[in-house]
Simulated assay, not measured.
Amino acid sequence: MSGHERLRLVVLISGSGSNLQAIIDACADGTIEGEVVAVISNRPDAYGLERARRAGIPAEVLDHTGFADREAFDRALIEHIDAYQPDLVVLAGFMRILTPAFVQHYSGRLLNIHPSLLPDFQGLHTHRRALEAGRTVHGASVHFVTEELDGGPVILQAEVPILPGDDEQTLAARVLEQEHRIYPTVIQWFAEGRLRLDPTHGVLLDGDRLPEPVRWPAAQS
């Protein structure tokens, strides 16, 4: 993106949309030099749709239960997304496993946030699994999406200490606070043209290959 263009974002959600709200707020206050041009949910009852409407953002429902299979849903989803001509597609609690064709269509333009320090605890129930494993540190990761579930190259991570007495709810709340910080940061890097996914070298930040994820808060510059 050039310094004179605003990043066009389409955000995909399935639930409450707290990360969506963080992105909307960051666009409003200039933290992200961009705008959310549409929010699409596969669930009609997702509260994130209301967040979008309150912000004056087009909000669409594409209910996955109305499609014969995953491939048909993803083809329709691509059509809905591409109608908004986004520069970047952002998964914010979108609880669908995406087909290879979908991922390939948006290669290098598809981000996700995951509530663990990837590659640890890919998949669901990350907070419970971290507690059961006796970990002392947990966190969140922003990564480019590839065909491997939660396996794409990680860009930025934030660590959260696991405290004595923590349960899933208290740990999840502290991780979510960090998610709301690191996701807008990565989106802004993309908006500034600092971040890209190279087919050969992986994640490039400011032209340099990232041998490992950047750790928050060292990345706040």
Rank of each mutant, 00 (worst) to 15 (best):
L12V: 03
L195K: 08
R135V: 12
L88D: 00
E50V: 13
V203K: 02
R75C: 05
S2E: 14
E35T: 13
V11D: 01
A83W: 02
I81H: 05
T99L: 02
A101C: 04
R51L: 05
P161D: 11
R135D: 14
R70P: 06
P115S: 00
D206V: 09
G108V: 07
G202Q: 10
V214Q: 13
R51E: 00
I13V: 10
E179N: 01
R51F: 10
G34K: 05
S2L: 12
D167V: 11
C27A: 04
P213W: 12
L124V: 13
T99V: 00
S18R: 11
R129Q: 15
E79T: 13
Y47I: 12
H64F: 12
S141R: 11
L91Y: 09
P100T: 07
R43V: 05
V154E: 04
S221L: 10
L91A: 06
I78M: 04
I40M: 05
H138M: 03
L176H: 14
V61C: 01
C27P: 01
I81V: 03
L20Y: 10
R43N: 03
D120E: 15
L20M: 07
E79H: 08
H105G: 02
L9C: 03
V61D: 00
I24C: 02
H143K: 00
A218Q: 10
I113P: 07
D63A: 06
A140T: 15
G193H: 09
L91P: 02
P211K: 01
S16C: 09
D69F: 09
G202C: 01
L20W: 08
P161L: 13
G193M: 00
C27F: 11
I81L: 00
F102A: 07
S16E: 12
A83G: 12
H143C: 00
A172D: 04
Q104N: 11
A26Y: 07
I32C: 00
D206E: 10
E168G: 04
P115Q: 01
E147I: 14
P161W: 14
H105F: 03
A52I: 02
R174F: 08
P44T: 12
L156H: 03
E71F: 07
L197T: 13
R96W: 08
R215S: 09
Q157L: 04
V37T: 09
E159V: 15
A55Q: 08
N112K: 04
A191Y: 08
H125I: 09
I155H: 01
A101K: 12
P115Y: 09
P100D: 07
A133L: 01
L77E: 08
A83S: 12
D206F: 10
R129T: 15
P58V: 06
L7V: 09
F121P: 01
S14D: 06
Q220Y: 10
L149G: 03
A130Y: 10
A101G: 08
D167L: 09
I187C: 05
R196W: 12
L20H: 06
Q104H: 13
L131G: 05
V154L: 05
R196A: 07
H180F: 04
T65K: 15
N42G: 03
I40W: 01
